[in-house]
Amino acid sequence: MSDTSIEIKAAAPTAASASQAIRDYVSLLKPRVMSLVVFTGFAGLYLAPGELNAGLAAIAVLCIAIGAGASGAINMWYDRDIDAVMTRTRGRPIPAGKVGADEALAFGVILSGMSVMIMGLATNWVAAALLAATIGFYVFIYTMWLKRRTPQNIVIGGASGALPPVIGWAAVTGDVTALPLVMFLIIFMWTPPHFWALSLYRSGDYEAAGVPMLPVVSGRRETQKQILIYTLLLVPITLLPVAFETVGMLTYGLPAAAFGLVFILSAWKVFRDASEKNCRRLFGFSILYLFVLFTLLIIDQAAGV
């Protein structure tokens, strides 16, 4: 019988392996998605009446970022089977074998709890409750329930992405009023054309993974129509702050209307021809559009001070 003593080769601790681990765990948080969440959360905080210590405000925005990232990590844990199939996502840390599934789940859960608790301690428990609701909605309602069951998944699930400005607002005031709800509505109505533009040129990926995105279930033509309809509904909603007389026409109304027209034009191009080029352009412009809208709101507020 041969000697079967086990040689334990410890992994040599290197700066490279530690930095790679950090990069892998950070990528679990979906940093590109997080940037939009952080910005809209900051916008809600900035636009809210009242004052919040700058340090606590920064911590509140950090909590929104961490909470969003945590829900992204849990989403990656739950969807690791789909991610392994889809071209767009197979390089993610779990399907690529860089982070274990249980480790990703633990990381997401710890960050979720941490972000909610810190938010409550730094600001108030209304904001903390809204953050907890956002994380819970994204994980349980969108990821675990809707995503694999209905083509309306991102319509309803988009509510979680629309809550950050409400959280930011509540962090300052402790309550929710009309303007944060309008900001919620803007992002909620923006989400479908944004994601459906992506799904039009990635429909093969979603079909292979068995995800019932609208192009897979109802076809490309129906998706093109729905993108246009939602865009036509979205643009007037973005002008509601003007109707409520909470923003200026020059600083917000006219530029928002101009960008809205460009968005409608992009959606019309996709309606006429859902080529990959048109869909990519619409997807890219939709991100710019949302950033511009919230930037205009911030500029309007700053100009009015």
């Binding site: 410890a10 992994a11 601790p13 392996s17 530690a18 790679q20 681990a21 950090i22 892998d24 765990y25 860089k98 982070v99 274990g100 480790e103 633990a106 990381f107 710890i110």
Partner: peptide
């Protein structure tokens, strides 16, 4: 071990 080390560093 590399993966466990990464997890420990993250936590």
């Amino acid at each position: 071990y590399t993966r466990k080390r990464g997890k420990n560093l993250a936590i």
